[in-house]
Simulated scan of single mutants.
Amino acid sequence: MDAPAPNAANAKAQTVGPVPTGYYRWEPEEDDVLICRAVREETHDVKTFVFAPRHKRQFEFVSGQFLTFEFEIDGATIHRCYTISSPPTRPDTVSITVKRVPNGPVSNWLHDAFQPGMMLKATVPMGEFSWSGMQATQYLFISGGSGITPMMSMTRSAFDLALISDIAFVHAARSPADIIFRDELDFMSRRNRSIRPTFIVEKDGPRDAWSGYRGRFDDSKLAMICPDFRDRVVFVCGPAPFMRAVKTTLKEAGFDMSRYHQESFNFDDFTEEAQEQIADAAEEIDSGVKVFQLEFTKTGRTIECPEGLTVMEAARRAGMRLPSSCSKGLCGTCKSKLVSGAVDMKHGGGIRQREIDAGMALLCCSKPKTDLVIER
Score class of each variant (00 low, 15 high):
Pro20His: 04
Thr68Met: 07
Lys99Ala: 12
Ser95Ile: 08
Leu67Ala: 05
Asp92Pro: 00
Pro91Gly: 09
Ser85Asp: 02
Val33Gln: 04
Pro20Tyr: 10
Phe59Val: 10
Gly104His: 04
Asp74Met: 12
Val46Ala: 10
Gly64Met: 08
Pro88Ser: 07
Thr93Ile: 09
Val98Tyr: 06
Tyr24Val: 15
Asp74Tyr: 13
Lys99Met: 04
Ile96Glu: 01
Glu41Trp: 06
Phe71Thr: 02
Thr21Ser: 14
Glu41Gly: 14
Asp45Ser: 07
Phe69Cys: 02
Thr89Leu: 06
Pro88Phe: 05
Phe59Ser: 01
Ile73Trp: 13
Ala76Gly: 06
Cys36Ile: 09
Ser107Gln: 02
Arg100Val: 14
Ile84Gly: 01
Ile73Arg: 14
Glu70Met: 13
Lys56His: 13
Phe49Ala: 08
Glu70Ser: 13
Phe59Cys: 01
Phe51Met: 00
Arg80Trp: 01
Cys36His: 05
Gln58Ile: 14
Leu34Thr: 06
Glu27Asp: 15
Arg25Ile: 06
Gly104Trp: 07
Ser95Met: 11
Val98Pro: 11
Asp32Cys: 01
Val50Ala: 09
Ser85Lys: 11
Val101Leu: 10
His111Gly: 01
Gly75Asp: 03
Ser86Lys: 07
Val106Phe: 04
Val101Trp: 03
Ala52Ser: 13
Pro105Trp: 13
Thr21Met: 15
Ala52Ile: 01
Gly64Lys: 07
Ser107Asn: 02
Glu41Val: 15
Asp45Ile: 00
Leu110Ser: 04
Val50His: 09
Asp92Trp: 03
Trp109Gly: 06
Pro20Met: 09
His44Trp: 05
Val46Leu: 02
Val106Ser: 06
Thr68Asn: 12
Ala38Ser: 15
Glu42Trp: 07
Trp109Leu: 07
His55Leu: 11
Thr77Glu: 12
Ile96Lys: 04
Leu34Asn: 05
Val39Glu: 04
Thr43Gly: 01
Val50Glu: 14
Phe49Met: 08
Ile35Asp: 00
Val39Met: 10
Phe49Ile: 09
Ser63Leu: 03
Val98Ser: 06
Val106Ile: 11
Trp26Gln: 01
Tyr24Phe: 14
Thr83His: 04
Thr89Gly: 15
Gln58Pro: 01
Pro88Asn: 09
Glu72Leu: 15
Lys99Thr: 01
Cys81Gln: 05
Arg37Pro: 00
Glu60Tyr: 11
Pro105Lys: 13
Phe69Asp: 00
Pro102Met: 11
